[in-house]
Design a protein around this nucleic acid. Structure first.
Lengths: 195, 195, 195, 195
DNA sequence: CATGAATGAGATTTCATTCAT
DNA sequence: GATGAATGAAATCTCATTCAT
């Protein structure tokens, strides 16, 4: 059954993510995933011939909506400032629905030294960073953001702040509203640097 | 010789850090460290009875100057804003002198799931965050920073931004001046939120 | 195949016992067992996740028939003296069929200091001792054994004698009839202390 | 200082015995002994060039008084029965003064597979067994013990019983009087088989 | 499509022992 | 005579991966 196979794959990926969330990457062994899923390791390898293939799928899941978000955000670009908030908000929705995904936020560090994974993770972050920078540049051109500051620096500030609050959210065991804090921070920043 | 033992320990720690920097934590095996130092694994374990002990020493190295920095920064607290810049600058000096140390910046994530390491790493970050928040609060009380914004959020912004730029610095293979970028960003932020 | 797995497990256990018999516990390394079985160490650990699990299985094998012996002996208890001889004889049958098992007789000492093993070994011996004492007490009540001697001491004498002769049998490379010697000794003892 | 060297050696041996008593042979590492003595492993090896040399010294300590006991017991041989009791009693005195020594009683099994140790341990036990058998034979010749029973079997019974009670004494954490129980048992046996 | 059995490489750790100082 | 540093071998155990059924 094709449907079943797809479902099974997703299931494996999510369980892997949950394991990472609970115990960190170093605890993610094929044995553990299989046990948690109630399947044999053999079966696991039928679905993902190499452990790295599973980790690549984890990365795919992590960035699953990126292209969509870029696309739908682009459509709001006549108002770049609102676009930025819309974009940030999209991630928050994703993270609040699936908090385990937040444990992947430092995925570049997690996968450093494993070439194919490191490369893919870096790619994801480069694209996100580039997109943010592009939006900021547009906001500067449209006068919504001051033009005397580097778009790269502001992109650093906003993306890092988002990451930082997400991380603190996870450490605090989700004890505050991610949305409120992130939106407040980004709004503050956009206001502070408005054109 | 006591001197030798201390030197050897430090040597091991730095080589471990370099290995982490080059290939990530997952590549940090005792065999690799030993080989790189030209010593036997047995010797390594004489100095660090458990691999975790070595990793704890790595963490110690990472946070080696924290207390000093807190202390000397405290002495500048009559001007909190300058204190913040001084504090940030202290880290930059450390990182520019020993760029490999920057690869430890996400150490909390790297060590997640290994209780004693995770705990210690979290402790380091909590203290840094708390210190930044304290400085911001003082700056607000002295009127240097606006009082209508949360000290916690501004602490998130500044510490995250520092981390983010450091990480990008490393990814870019140190292709820009860490000092310039970080100081520029933090100055911008302090200006933007001045009281 | 379930059958195969069970067979393999038993096979491992018996080879471990043989190794203990030939060279003592201290020579029982997982590498040696694996080599002797012609399997990899990995495979060994699939069957027994920890070496201690294998040793526990060795203990189980050692005491495999204990409950049976207690049970069938109980049924002969209307004549306690005969019951004692029947019970002793049951062990002799086991030991003569599988002489390697005799090398486990001092298992409590062999496993001292390894908590889970020590505890289990002690448990086995305590039960055997208690059962012997119970039989002696019954024999005293029924008048078959003198009542002016402590059941515990006589239990010590009989169980120790059995052990002692078994050990000497092994040291002598099975050069005499275990049955004859043990039965002779125990018969002598029962006669000497008859009521 | 010769005196010091001798003292140090004895000290090492006793600490080794204590360690065996507390945690079993398998826990007796040179590292542990050195730590317990507050000396370096290097120093330990100055006194005992090989670990086996230390273990041989442990065996020597275990059998230290054997020759003396054989000798002084011989002098009482005009009354063999009393000689047997005297002989048994000598061990009890030793064991009650140094209960840790009792943990060596199964030393033959502990050292099985380590040729030089196994051989020496067997030798000790063979001599003790032979001496006991000799005394019994004499008691039979002098009419104190029945002549229709094998001296070897009675030697098995008496030596095993002694061992068995000693072992139970240790397991019970010395909760009963070793002397009373052993003397009672042996007296009982000698009476039961008197000529 | 799923599984259980097998595996070899490698990880961490312990051990007895050596040697220069 | 004592020490600390060093070591190589071995021990237990984990890992990702393969394959016949």
């Amino acid at each position: 059954m094709e449907f079943n196979a797809v479902y099974r794959r997703e299931n494996i990926v999510w369980n892997a993510i949950e394991l990472i969330n609970e115990s960190g990457v170093h605890a993610l062994s094929t044995k553990l995933i299989a046990k948690r899923l109630g399947i044999s390791e053999g079966t696991l390898f039928k679905h993902f011939p190499r452990k790295n293939d599973l980790l690549l799928a984890v990365l795919d899941q992590f960035a699953l909506y990126d292209e969509d978000m870029f696309y739908t955000t682009q459509n709001k670009m006549e108002n770049p400032k609102e676009a930025i908030l819309f974009y940030i908000n999209s991630y928050i929705i994703y993270y609040e629905s699936y908090p385990e995904i937040v444990s992947l936020i430092q995925v570049s560090d997690m996968f450093r030294g494993i070439p194919e994974l490191e490369e893919k993770a870096n790619h994801v972050f480069y694209k996100r960073y580039a997109f943010m920078k592009e939006m900021i540049t547009k906001a500067q051109l449209s006068g919504q953001i001051r033009q005397d500051i580097g778009a790269d620096i502001l992109a650093d500030i906003i993306t890092s702040t988002k990451k930082g609050i997400c991380t603190r959210w996870r450490f605090s065991k989700y004890s505050f509203s991610l949305r409120e804090k992130v939106i407040e921070a980004v709004t503050m920043l956009l206001d502070a640097f408005k054109g």
